[in-house]
């Protein structure tokens, strides 16, 4: 199978993720969609790495995974705290940061 198909798949995943971020209000779902986008990016990195025979992309994918893991920790913690404070996980409710 040609590696280019992985890129198509990644594009599809990214689009799903982006649409989720833009459309959904639930913080958890938005968060998952971000993860989806990150993984889509990882997939492209790995796919291109394979296509060009260069390991840089794979290394970069590991970095992304690590950062994503860290982000999950912080992000979930924030969402949990937010839910505790407001009894809601809607991102639109947390719109105090404005002028």
């Amino acid at each position: 199978m040609s590696p280019i198909n992985y890129v198509y798949l990644a594009a599809l995943l990214f689009t799903i993720g982006a649409a989720g971020v833009l459309i959904r209000r639930n913080a958890i779902v938005v968060f998952m969609c971000i993860e989806l986008m990150l993984n889509a990016a990882n997939l492209t990195l790995v796919a291109f790495s394979r296509m060009h025979g260069n390991l840089d992309g794979q290394i970069m994918a590991f970095f992304v995974m690590v950062v994503a893991a860290a982000e999950v920790v912080v992000g979930l913690a924030i969402i949990v705290m937010l839910y505790r404070a407001r009894h809601s996980a809607s991102v639109d409710d947390a719109s105090l940061m404005k002028l």
């Binding site: 982006a18 971020v21 209000r25 991102v91 639109d92 947390a94 404005k98 002028l99």
Partner: peptide, 14 residues
């Protein structure tokens, strides 16, 4: 434009 909705920021980013 700075309306506090994270999703609209995301839209402008996209």
């Amino acid at each position: 434009l700075q309306n506090g909705f994270a999703r609209s920021y995301a839209v402008s980013m996209f």
